[in-house]
C-alpha cells in the first residue's frame, strides 16, 4: 500500500497538471462569481398581512436559498470550461507521459499496470473534483460574509447535498469519457478533440445529453429532485464506472505507446 501511495502522490505532483490546475481554477471561480452576483426576484403570496421573516431554521424558504440553488445551473460558461479542464486533466494524465517518453521508466518500476491506471485515474479525479468544489465553496462563502449563518444553514442540508451529487456526476461523466478517449486514441490532440466533440458539442447544439443534462438538475434539487433515482444513478455513476472499467481493460492489455 505504501508503494501505491508513493505512485499516487507522484502522479498528483506532476508539475504540468498542477500548472493547468492553477491556470484553470481562478477563471472557473470568476465565471461562477459573475453568475452569482446578480439580483433575483420572485412574486410571492401569503395570507397574512406581513411577508415571511426567515429566522434560524427556515432559511431554505427564502429567495436567497433559491438563488443559491439557481446560480450554478445558470452560469453555463463555468460548466463548459469545467468539462474542458477535466478533459485536459485526463488527457494529460494518460497521454503526456507516453508521448514524452517517461512512461517507459514508470513501467519499468515494480508496479502492476492496473495499479498505475488506478493511481492515474485517482489523481485526475482529485484535481477535477477540486476544480469543481473550490469555486463552489468560495462563491457560496465569500460574497455572503454578512449572512454566513443563513448560508451555513442552507448549505448543510440534504437538498444541497443533492446539488453537490449532481455536480459530481457531471465531473465523473466527463472524466470517464475523456479517459476512455485518451486510452483509445494514440494522440493527445485527437483525444482532446474527441472528448470535446463528445462532451461539449451536444450542449452547443442545444441537446440535453449527459454531462450537460445534469446541469439543470442542480436547480431542481431544491424541490427534492433526487440524484439517487435509477435514471440519474445510471448516467452519473454506472455509465462512468463502466467506461472506466473498459479503459482499465484497454490500458492493461495494450503496449506502452
Amino acid at each position: 500500500m505504501g508503494r501505491f501511495r508513493d505512485l499516487f502522490i507522484w502522479e498528483l505532483g506532476d508539475s504540468l497538471r498542477l500548472l493547468l490546475f492553477l491556470l484553470g481554477v481562478p477563471p472557473l471561480t470568476y465565471l461562477l462569481a459573475v453568475g452569482y452576483l446578480r439580483a433575483q426576484w420572485d412574486v410571492g403570496s401569503v395570507s397574512s398581512h406581513l411577508p415571511p421573516v426567515f429566522t434560524a431554521g427556515s432559511f431554505l424558504g427564502s429567495i436567497t436559498a433559491l438563488h443559491l440553488f439557481d446560480y450554478p445551473s445558470l452560469s453555463t460558461g463555468f460548466w463548459v470550461l469545467l468539462s474542458l479542464l477535466v478533459a485536459v486533466f485526463s488527457v494529460m494524465t494518460f497521454r503526456y507521459d507516453r508521448e514524452n517518453g517517461y512512461a517507459l521508466s514508470v513501467y519499468s518500476l515494480p508496479f502492476g499496470k492496473s495499479e498505475i491506471f488506478t493511481a492515474k485515474v485517482l489523481s485526475a479525479l482529485v484535481l477535477s473534483l477540486l476544480s469543481l468544489y473550490v469555486p463552489l465553496l468560495i462563491v457560496d462563502v465569500f460574497p455572503n460574509v454578512d449572512i454566513l449563518e443563513g448560508i451555513r444553514e442552507i448549505v448543510f442540508t440534504e437538498r444541497y447535498l443533492y446539488l453537490l451529487v449532481f455536480a459530481t456526476y457531471f465531473v465523473l461523466f466527463s472524466l470517464s469519457v475523456s479517459t476512455l478517449f485518451s486510452v483509445l486514441l494514440e494522440n493527445m490532440f485527437l483525444a482532446f478533440i474527441a472528448s470535446f466533440f463528445f462532451l461539449v458539442l451536444p450542449f452547443f447544439a442545444g441537446l440535453s445529453w449527459p454531462p450537460f443534462s445534469f446541469v439543470p438538475m442542480l436547480a431542481r434539487s431544491l424541490s427534492w429532485a433526487s440524484p439517487f433515482s435509477t435514471d440519474w444513478l445510471t448516467w452519473g455513476l454506472v455509465v462512468p464506472a463502466l467506461l472506466l472499467l473498459v479503459s482499465e481493460v484497454m490500458f492493461t492489455r495494450r503496449d506502452v505507446k
Partner: peptide, 22 residues
C-alpha cells in the same frame, strides 16, 4: 426587478421578494 403588481388587503398580500448579492 419587475414589473410586477403587488397588493395587500385583509385577506393577504402579494409581495415581491428580491435577493441581493451585495
Amino acid at each position: 426587478i419587475g414589473p410586477a403588481v403587488i397588493s395587500g388587503s385583509k385577506d393577504g398580500i402579494t409581495y415581491v421578494a428580491v435577493h441581493s448579492s451585495g
